[in-house]
Write a protein that binds this DNA or RNA. Sequence first.
DNA 1: AGTATCTGTACGTCGTAGCTTACGGTTCGT
DNA 2: ACGAACCGTAAGCTACGACGTACAGATACT
Lengths: 107, 107
Amino acid sequence: MATYQADDGWDALGDPSRRAIVACLAERPRAVGELAQELPISRPAVSQHLKILKDAGLVTDQAAGTRRVYRLNPAGVAALRDQLETFWNRALDSYQDVAEQPTEEIP
Amino acid sequence: MATYQADDGWDALGDPSRRAIVACLAERPRAVGELAQELPISRPAVSQHLKILKDAGLVTDQAAGTRRVYRLNPAGVAALRDQLETFWNRALDSYQDVAEQPTEEIP
DNA sequence: AGTATCTGTACGTCGTAGCTTACGGTTCGT
DNA sequence: ACGAACCGTAAGCTACGACGTACAGATACT
């Protein structure tokens, strides 16, 4: 009963730094150092965030020489989008009984 | 450049308890006490979470006698959905150059 | 009026998430 | 083979957020 079964993809996007990383990767795939260079946090911090995003299925990594290129995972993003879609549809049902109870707030 | 301009609607959904509240309200509008009764946290805790969700524009409240009924706000949910849509579209652009760099990972 | 019910807020506590620094491992270049 | 560049992980510290308890306000009921 509405236990939500979190993929913890939401927990991943709950942090502003991680949202910034996702926004960067949405533009173009980048390496860890490149990301750290555009963010106000250190490179190891970016590395830790990327691990969380990867576990959440939001990004994928690929070794390229000594560097490691991360890119956004459309499947993970689509999963979250579908959940919002569900919430949106159910909320519409709750809204089709607007003014079900007459509001007499002002005596 | 990818500063993300957070509505902090994401910060609101970053907490598991708040996601559970949203999931409950997606089914049907409820009062504070009803929500607290279905969640493993106290009533004041629910009240604090509802304040955050309200500030984020994800829920709306309505006085009903001595109770206060909260319901999901479809507009706020749709806003988050649109942002994911943007990420998804941009990621598709990043994906249409798959295998741009030949991977010689195994010597 | 008095009481009961429902709610919001202040406050103090505790856990934990995020960050930096330091270190070790892997790959490319000379 | 040596050094440089890039990355992941461990340890440690700090700060913030979530929670419960206690209190105050508002409304309905008798």
